[in-house]
Write a protein that binds this DNA or RNA. Structure first.
Length: 486
DNA sequence: TTAGCCTTGATT
DNA sequence: AATCAAGGCTAA
């Protein structure tokens, strides 16, 4: 899993935004755009829906062979191989990883090898087709209106070939809204009270409406979406009156909804996908980078709107976030595994599950160590039965770190940290079947989390130095901020 | 092993 | 009867 951690802490894609826009324009002028869809795995022509989404014939066959024969591949490089039409045969390991990452479904391969007929994905495919129709109509309408970029862009937001999106469709542009995507975004410009903070970026988050139909989720083939719903309903209905400290209730309200994140991430991936083609098909590494970058936006938005944090001055807000971004990213991945994950698989924010055995990476000792220690940490937190309330607290505990240098309002940060600790202690002790040493164990886990984040950042910085991390994104800004202090 | 073409059969 | 996404076959 830590392989994924480190990948997640990697790079983002501002340069590609330009490509995306170019692709949109090309498609507009193509008479029959959606007959020329490209396989999300390798960029070849698609031949129909296969195992959850539109793919080409070769990736369909490859996925079938791999699953049916229970094949295990090992990447000879560092699990970052580029998969495109000409190179797809070179690394089956990375190819299969990419199949899973874009949303091909293991469960669509029949165990009994029965031929013909239809499977449970039928309605999903139908919905996706309808969305594509809608998109096409919108594009045609926008052409009539002399190619209004916004309309074209939003039309594309509604189309998404990833399986996760077939279940929960994205509805609104992502953080890097089209109108701002061509220029680099900085942390500063995302926080309020700063000169660079634009209304466009604000309204993206606050106006976000989740259109994921509950009925769809109920009948969804994905158990993940169902899990999120159940737990979210529990959390929103149960805290009051059950002896949960008021502060915790407040934290829970600040906590973003997992299903909303899933939708936003799907929309972001869609936006990126528009720019992919045969020559520019992203590696697993790059996909993870895109996700990491988006997670950073989620994180900033969470902090920006959270209690206590919004009372801080911009300079302190930035210092706190620069200090703990990697720890919060890791915590996000880890908490998702503890709360919703299954043993042996990595649950992505998109709701997709990746087999951990397939992601083992011996290529880099740093990566291998991250993987190992990350898994152990998940296991420890799982045994401690850390719940969503506690994770919400831990995030604040990490964010409000009074040891950060040159804080203007260090006293306030310290007082918040004390209050968070107090509320956590109260919650931990009031819960039944909790032993006395649990809180201490939890704190030990946090120190392990911190050391993991240091390791991950070091690894990333090396990648950055070897020019594998692109410039002009939130991630490189974070990397530089930390390095310039130390 | 790959990938293009073929066969199958539940659903529409 | 038509559709189309499963699995199967086979030359390269």
């Amino acid at each position: 899993m830590c392989l994924k951690f480190s990948l997640i802490l990697s790079r983002s894609v501002n340069g590609e935004k330009v490509l995306m826009r170019a692709a949109v324009c090309r498609m507009e002028h193509r008479p029959d755009g959606d007959l020329e869809e490209l396989c999300p795995v390798c960029g070849d022509q698609v031949s129909g829906y296969h195992y959850g989404l539109l793919t080409c014939e070769s990736c369909k066959g490859f996925f079938k062979r791999t699953v049916q024969n229970n094949k295990k591949y090992i990447c000879a490089e560092s699990q970052e191989c580029r998969i495109d039409k000409s190179q797809r045969k070179r690394c089956p390991s990375c190819r299969f990883q990419k199949c899973l990452l874009v949303g091909m479904r293991l469960e669509a391969v029949r165990a009994d090898r029965m031929r013909g007929g239809r499977n449970k994905f039928g309605p999903m495919y139908k919905r996706d087709r309808a969305l594509k129709q809608q998109r096409k109509a919108l594009i045609q309408a926008s052409e009539l209106r002399q190619c209004s970029p916004n309309l074209v862009s939003s039309a594309y937001q509604r189309d998404f070939t990833f399986a996760s999106c077939l279940q929960t469709q994205p509805s609104v542009p992502t953080a890097q809204n089209d109108s701002v995507s061509h220029q680099p975004l900085s942390l500063c410009s995302l926080l309020p009270d700063s000169p660079g903070y634009t209304q466009c970026q604000c309204t993206f988050i606050s106006n976000w409406t989740v259109k994921s139909e509950h009925s769809d989720c109920a009948s969804s083939p994905s158990p993940v979406a169902a899990v999120y719903f159940e737990s979210d309903e529990l959390c929103s209905s149960s805290p009051q009156g059950l002896g949960i400290p008021q502060l915790l209730v407040e934290f829970l309200h600040c906590d973003p909804d997992e299903l909303q994140l899933q939708n936003k991430m799907a929309a972001r991936l869609l936006q990126e996908q528009v720019g992919w083609n045969q020559h520019d098909s992203p590696s697993t590494f790059r996909l993870m980078c895109i996700m990491a970058d988006q997670m950073l936006f989620f994180m900033v938005e969470w902090a920006r709107t959270s209690t206590f944090f919004k009372q801080l001055k911009l300079s302190d807000q930035m210092k706190l976030l620069h200090n703990c971004w990697s720890e919060l990213l890791l915590l996000d991945v880890i908490s998702r595994q503890v709360l919703y994950g299954k043993e042996g698989t990595l649950l992505l924010v998109t709701g997709q599950e990746v087999e951990l055995s397939d992601t083992a990476c011996p290529a880099s000792p740093t990566l291998a160590s991250l993987v190992q220690r990350g898994q152990e940490l998940v296991e420890k937190l799982h045994i401690l039965k850390v719940d969503r309330q506690e994770f919400a607290c831990i995030k604040f505990l990490i964010l409000f770190n009074p040891d950060v240098t040159e804080l203007e309002d260090c006293q306030f940060v310290k007082s918040v940290q004390e209050r968070v600790k107090g509320a956590m202690l109260e919650y931990t002790w009031s819960a039944p079947s909790q032993h006395l040493g649990r809180f201490a164990h939890l704190l030990l886990c946090l120190s392990e989390l911190h050391s993991l984040s240091v390791l991950a950042e070091e690894y990333l910085y090396c990648k950055h130095l070897s020019a594998e991390v692109p410039c002009n994104n939130l991630l490189t800004e974070m990397l530089h901020a930390k390095q310039s202090w130390e």
